[in-house]
Simulated scan of single mutants.
Amino acid sequence: MFKYTVCFVKRKDRILMLNREKAPIMGVWNGVGGKVEENESPDQGALREVFEETGIKVETFFSKGTVTWEDHNGELDGIYVYLYEVDEHFTYETPLKTREGILEWKSIDWILHPKNLGIAEMVAQYLSVLLTEKGIHSFTYKGGHIIIS
Rank of each mutant, 00 (worst) to 15 (best):
1 M>Y: 07
2 F>M: 02
3 K>R: 10
4 Y>S: 09
7 C>V: 00
7 C>G: 03
8 F>K: 01
9 V>W: 01
9 V>H: 00
10 K>S: 01
11 R>L: 00
12 K>R: 10
14 R>T: 07
14 R>F: 11
16 L>D: 02
18 L>A: 01
18 L>I: 02
19 N>F: 10
19 N>W: 02
19 N>L: 15
20 R>D: 06
21 E>V: 12
25 I>P: 04
26 M>G: 13
29 W>H: 03
29 W>Y: 06
31 G>D: 05
31 G>H: 00
31 G>A: 00
32 V>N: 06
34 G>F: 05
35 K>A: 11
36 V>G: 08
36 V>I: 15
36 V>F: 09
37 E>R: 12
37 E>K: 11
39 N>P: 00
39 N>Q: 10
41 S>W: 14
41 S>C: 08
41 S>T: 15
42 P>R: 02
43 D>Q: 07
44 Q>W: 03
44 Q>M: 07
46 A>C: 02
47 L>P: 07
48 R>A: 04
49 E>W: 00
49 E>Y: 02
51 F>Y: 14
52 E>D: 13
52 E>N: 14
52 E>K: 11
54 T>S: 04
57 K>R: 13
58 V>N: 01
58 V>Q: 04
59 E>Y: 08
61 F>N: 09
61 F>Y: 14
64 K>S: 14
65 G>Y: 01
65 G>H: 02
68 T>C: 08
69 W>K: 05
69 W>Q: 11
69 W>C: 08
70 E>L: 12
72 H>G: 15
77 D>W: 11
79 I>A: 10
79 I>Q: 05
82 Y>F: 11
85 E>I: 01
86 V>A: 09
87 D>K: 12
90 F>C: 09
91 T>W: 15
94 T>S: 06
95 P>I: 07
96 L>D: 06
97 K>N: 12
98 T>E: 07
100 E>Y: 10
101 G>S: 10
101 G>Q: 04
101 G>R: 06
102 I>M: 13
103 L>G: 03
103 L>I: 06
106 K>V: 07
107 S>P: 09
109 D>F: 03
112 L>M: 09
114 P>K: 15
114 P>C: 15
118 G>D: 10
120 A>I: 09
121 E>D: 10
121 E>Y: 06
121 E>S: 13
121 E>W: 09
121 E>M: 07
123 V>W: 00
123 V>K: 01
126 Y>K: 04
126 Y>M: 01
128 S>W: 15
130 L>Q: 04
130 L>D: 07
130 L>F: 03
131 L>D: 06
132 T>I: 08
132 T>L: 13
132 T>K: 14
134 K>E: 15
134 K>V: 14
135 G>F: 05
135 G>L: 09
137 H>G: 02
140 T>A: 10
143 G>Q: 07
143 G>S: 12
145 H>I: 09
146 I>Y: 04
148 I>Y: 11
149 S>M: 12
